[in-house]
Every structure is written in C-alpha cells, then in structure tokens.
C-alpha cells in the first residue's frame, strides 16, 4: 500500500525518532509512506476565529500537494497519513472548513493563484493509528517478533488526537485505539486518570513551571496506576512530558526519571526492527534500560 505521508516540521528536527520509527514500522506493516516532494509547515494550530481565512492556506497547500501525488499516480489514494497530533488536527480541520464553506473556498483559491492547480477537497486526512486499526489489529499482532510481555504501558492521548468532539481519531470520552495497539504488541495497557488531560501545550515556551507541574501530574498518575512507560503521538506532548522532567526533579527530589516515547518507537521495538529504526538515543528519558531489563533489547 503506497500512501502519502505528511511528517510536519518537528519530525525533521527534534523528533526524528518519531519520523524514522514511523517510516520503518509502517514499511514492515506493508504501508509505504511517501513524503511529498515539497511541503510547508501546516501552522501547527487551527485558526479558530470564523473570519480567519489566511491561516487555512498553509494546510490546504499541503493537501493540494497530496492531490497532485494522487493525480500523477505516486500514491494510490487521495489520502494523507500523519502521526503528529497537531498536524493531524490542523490538516483535518482546514480540510473540513474547505469542504463546508464555499465562501472560504473562494477566498482560499484566490490566494493560491501561484499554484498550478486548485485543490478539490478530495483528500482524506488520517492518523497512522487509524491506518493500522483499519488493517486490523491481528495484522499488527501477527507481525510482532518480540512480544512486549509484562510491559505496562500508559497511553497518553493528550488533546488534539481526541478533541474537539467528533474530529479526533477515537471517542473523546472513552478512547481505546492506543490501548488496542498496546495489546496487539503483547504489552499491557494501563488506564490512568490523566490520559486525556492537557500537558500545557505551547505554554511550555513562556510558562515552563506551570507546564512542568501539569506534566508532573500526568507522569505521576501514570506511575501510580502502575505504568512503566508512557507512549504519545505528539512531539509537543513528548517534549513537555520528558524535557520538563528536568524542572520537575528540581522541585521534587523524590521524582525519578520516567521514560516517555512515541507509539511508533514501541511498535518498531515489538516488530523486532533494528535499533536505528527506533532512535531511542534521541529520547530525553532513555527507555533502553527498561527494555534491556525486560529482555526486549540485548545488553551491549
């Protein structure tokens, strides 16, 4: 299956492990992800004010690239796969605006005169978790080489994978898609109270301490519930939950570093891929000691 893939900016810089583990594990699952030849930042957040059209241009331009890929036969479907929760949300919502508001379509098209074609609104925005779910959890289970037996994994959804209501990849009140994925990998999903709670998001820039406090609550709830590791699908959540542990430890000496990784890194591990497909060295909180202790990674 050849599908278009929109990585987004952060996956090319501080979250390369997310990009690489996505590409490598998808390949093993029979999904060839193809990046458009050129793409631009989606803007990271959906413009919420009703009269703001300009900020929809960036995501729509990316969707146009996908339509072009479909037209030229580079990909099989008019669909784009994302993994970053913020890219997913921004592309999906801009697409929805485009397909429901003809006045805005006119304005958007007027401002994209430099493009050689116009966007038709045909692209379907999908998250990789949905793609894997549609393949069937058995497909994933059957490809597992190293069942992650006895590993207790807390799925952290955060905000934009699930909200606003109806726009997310799963039920906003009671999601289960990450739990199903964790089970298919042979690990045990840990339910915890804060799995949908916000980590403080972009306030990590100027309100570090508050974000450290929110992240602490999330990490601590996962720990109390018995988790050994957290998986996430957002480079901003990953940053807050792992990098802000430095601030947490400064304020709470009893706090012990807690590993946080991308869900695709966990998949790559269970699929038995090479270590350079998981890039665990990039994670601020190194999960390798845990995985070695569990026998999933060889001691070197």
């Amino acid at each position: 299956m050849r599908l278009a893939y929109y990585p987004g900016c952060t996956l090319k810089t501080t979250a390369k492990s997310f990009d690489i583990s996505t590409l490598e594990s998808s390949k093993t699952l029979g999904i060839d992800l193809i990046e458009p030849e050129r793409w631009n930042c989606c803007g990271t957040v959906h413009a919420l004010s009703k009269d703001d059209v300009m900020h929809h241009l960036a995501p729509i331009r990316n969707l146009l690239r996908i339509e072009e890929m479909k037209k030229t036969g580079i990909v099989e479907e008019s669909k784009v796969i994302t993994v970053c929760a913020m890219c997913y949300n921004t592309l999906k919502r801009a697409n929805l605006v485009f397909n429901s508001d003809s006045d805005k379509v006119k304005k958007i098209n007027e401002n994209m005169e430099n493009e050689s074609s116009v966007y038709n609104g045909s692209v379907q925005v999908e998250h990789l978790l949905e793609t894997i779910k549609h393949q069937g959890w058995d497909n994933l289970r059957n490809k597992v080489k190293i069942p992650l037996k006895d590993l207790k994994v807390a799925p952290y959804y955060g905000c934009l994978l699930l909200r606003p209501r109806g726009l997310g990849i799963d039920n906003a009140d009671k999601p289960s898609i990450m739990e199903d994925m964790i089970r298919a990998l042979g690990a045990e999903p840990i339910d915890f109270a804060y799995k949908q709670k916000c980590c403080g998001s972009y306030h990590t820039v100027f309100m570090k301490e508050r974000v450290a406090d929110l992240s602490y609550k999330i990490l601590n709830q996962a720990k109390i519930a018995g988790a050994e590791i957290i998986v996430t699908a957002c480079p901003l959540c990953e940053f807050n939950l792992s990098h802000r542990q430095t601030e947490i430890i400064k304020n709470r000496s009893e706090f012990k570093e807690f590993p946080v990784i991308y869900f695709t890194q966990l998949i790559a591990l269970a699929l038995g891929l090479k270590e350079d497909s998981m890039v665990f060295g990039e994670n601020k909180t190194d999960p390798r000691p845990l995985f070695k202790y569990k026998g999933f990674l060889k001691e070197i």
């Binding site: 900016c9 952060t10 810089t13 979250a15 803007g43 990271t44 972009y202 990098h243």
Partner: peptide, 26 residues
C-alpha cells in the same frame, strides 16, 4: 509575548512546534 524573551539555550532546546503554536496564539 516576544521571542526575544527567550535565551539562546531555550531557543535551541524548544521544538519548533512549541514556538510556532505559541506565537500563533499569542
């Protein structure tokens, strides 16, 4: 907010997803 309020270390450490979204909102 003003991006000049950040130290060079903070700018290096922060992922662009954080900076772009923060400036978009604020």
């Amino acid at each position: 907010v003003n991006i000049d309020m950040l130290t060079p270390e903070e700018l290096r450490e922060l992922p662009q997803i954080a900076i772009v979204s923060n400036l978009r909102k604020l």
